[in-house]
Simulated assay, not measured.
Amino acid sequence: MTETAEKPVEEMTFEEAMRELEAVVTRLERGDVALDESITLYERGAALKKRCEEELARAEEKVAQITLDADGTPTGTKPVEGM
């Protein structure tokens, strides 16, 4: 896989998780992986997908919290509960 394959998924940035997820999908699509390894890759891919979704949701929440003035200029951010 990649150098991030050993890194715990929950510690990955969005970009790291996305790169590794793409590598996992490529390997699975090639179909030249043994069944046991395919299962392991699929499980890793599912965890990577979840991580990407979580990071996107977090980013969307931050963007949604940006406050705008009457001219549409960002004036700051409101704190997001639970973050």
Rank of each mutant, 00 (worst) to 15 (best):
P8T: 05
T73E: 02
E3D: 05
Q65S: 04
T77G: 03
T73R: 01
P74Q: 01
R19C: 13
V63I: 15
R51H: 06
K50M: 07
A70W: 09
I66S: 01
E81I: 04
E53M: 08
A47G: 03
K62W: 03
L56Q: 11
T77A: 04
E3S: 07
D36E: 09
A47C: 04
E54D: 11
L56I: 08
Q65E: 03
L41V: 10
L68Q: 02
E20K: 00
E6W: 12
A34H: 15
E54C: 04
E20I: 06
R30A: 13
E54H: 06
T2S: 12
P79E: 10
A64V: 06
T4L: 08
E55C: 07
A57I: 07
T73M: 01
D71W: 03
V80Q: 04
A46H: 05
M18S: 08
E6V: 14
E16R: 13
F14D: 14
V33D: 10
T4D: 11
R51K: 08
D71Q: 02
E11A: 08
T67D: 05
V80S: 13
E55R: 07
R58G: 15
V33T: 11
L35Y: 14
V24H: 00
I39F: 06
V24M: 02
E15T: 03
L48F: 07
L35K: 14
T13L: 05
E22Q: 01
A46E: 05
E11Q: 08
L41W: 11
M1E: 06
R19P: 11
V9R: 04
A17F: 15
Q65I: 02
M18E: 11
I66G: 04
I39M: 06
T73L: 02
L68R: 00
K78Q: 04
L41M: 10
A70I: 07
L35D: 14
T26F: 14
V24T: 14
E53N: 11
T40S: 15
M12Y: 00
L68A: 01
E29M: 10
S38N: 02
G82R: 08
L28E: 10
L56N: 09
E61R: 11
F14Y: 14
L48K: 00
R27D: 10
I39V: 06
I39W: 03
A23K: 13
R51L: 00
S38R: 01
A46W: 03
L28Q: 13
Q65D: 04
K7L: 14
C52W: 03
D69A: 02
R19H: 11
Q65G: 03
M83E: 09
C52G: 03
D69K: 00
L48G: 05
E20Y: 02
K62A: 09
E22L: 01
I66A: 02
P79D: 06
G82N: 14
K49A: 13
E55D: 05
L48R: 01
E6D: 13
E3G: 08
E10Q: 15
K49N: 14
K7G: 13
A59T: 13
M83T: 06
L41K: 12
M12C: 02
A47L: 03
R58A: 15
M18L: 09
R30D: 10
L68V: 00
K49C: 11
G72L: 00
T4C: 12
T13S: 09
V25M: 09
E16M: 15
L21K: 15
R27P: 08
E60Y: 05
L21F: 15
E29S: 14
